[in-house]
C-alpha cells in the first residue's frame, strides 16, 4: 500500500468516527460507542500503517519528525501546566476545599440548603463536559504546534531546496 492510499483510508475512518460521534450526541447519549470506535480505529490504522511502503521516509524525515515532536512537547507541557494550574485554583475555590462553606440559606417552605446554586461541582466549570472541550482545545493546539514545527524543521533540513539538476 502506498502512502496516498493510507491517507484516503485515514479520511474514511475519520468520517465514520464523526458519524458515530454525531449519533452518540444526538441519539444514544452514551459515550461508549464513540470511545470504542476511536480506540478500534487507532488499532486498525496502526496495523494498516505497517503495510505502507514509503520510499521517501528515510533518516532525515525521521529526524524532522523527532525534532518537531520534541519541540511540540517542550512548548505543550508549559501550556498544559498553566491551564491545569488555573483549573486547580478554580477547583480549590469551592466549599470543602479552601473556601469556607457559605451559611445555610433560610428556606421557610423546606429544608435549609447550604450550597447556593452555581457552587456544586456538576454546575460549575469543572463539569465533565466542559473539561472535554478544554482537552480538545489543548489537543488541537498540540496539533497546530506540531504542524508548525514540522514545517520549520523540514525547511531547515532542506525539504524544499531546489537544485540546478
Amino acid at each position: 500500500m502506498n502512502r496516498n492510499t493510507f491517507y484516503i483510508v485515514c479520511g474514511i475512518v475519520a468520517l465514520i468516527n464523526v458519524l458515530i460521534f454525531w449519533v452518540s450526541v444526538i441519539q444514544d447519549k452514551t459515550p461508549i460507542f464513540i470511545q470504542a470506535s476511536v480506540v478500534l480505529s487507532a488499532i486498525v490504522l496502526y496495523i494498516i500503517k505497517r503495510e505502507v511502503k514509503d520510499p521517501h521516509e528515510d533518516e532525515r524525515m525521521v529526524q524532522i519528525n523527532q525534532k518537531a515532536a520534541f519541540r511540540t512537547l517542550e512548548i505543550f507541557w508549559i501550556v498544559f501546566f498553566v491551564i491545569s494550574l488555573g483549573s486547580i485554583v478554580w477547583g480549590f475555590d469551592r466549599p470543602g476545599h479552601f473556601r469556607e462553606n457559605p451559611p445555610p440559606i433560610f428556606n421557610p417552605t423546606g429544608p435549609a440548603s447550604s450550597l447556593p446554586a452555581g457552587t456544586m461541582p456538576s454546575e460549575g466549570f469543572l463539569f465533565a463536559g466542559n473539561v472535554g472541550f478544554l482537552q480538545l482545545f489543548l489537543l488541537v493546539l498540540m496539533l497546530f504546534l506540531y504542524v508548525g514545527f514540522r514545517f520549520y524543521y523540514a525547511r531547515k533540513l532542506g525539504e524544499w531546496e531546489t537544485d540546478e539538476e
Binding site: 521517501h56 528515510d58 531546496e161 539538476e165
Partner: peptide, 30 residues
C-alpha cells in the same frame, strides 16, 4: 544523478540534495 544515488542508497532525492547543500548531516551509517 541525485535520483539514482538516492535510489541506490534507499533515501530520498531531497536527502541527497540536503546533504550536498550542507543543510543536513547524515548519520554515520549513511
Amino acid at each position: 544523478t541525485q535520483e539514482k544515488l538516492a535510489d541506490d542508497l534507499s533515501v530520498s532525492r531531497q536527502t541527497i540534495l540536503a546533504i550536498e547543500k550542507g543543510k543536513y548531516d547524515p548519520s554515520l551509517e549513511l
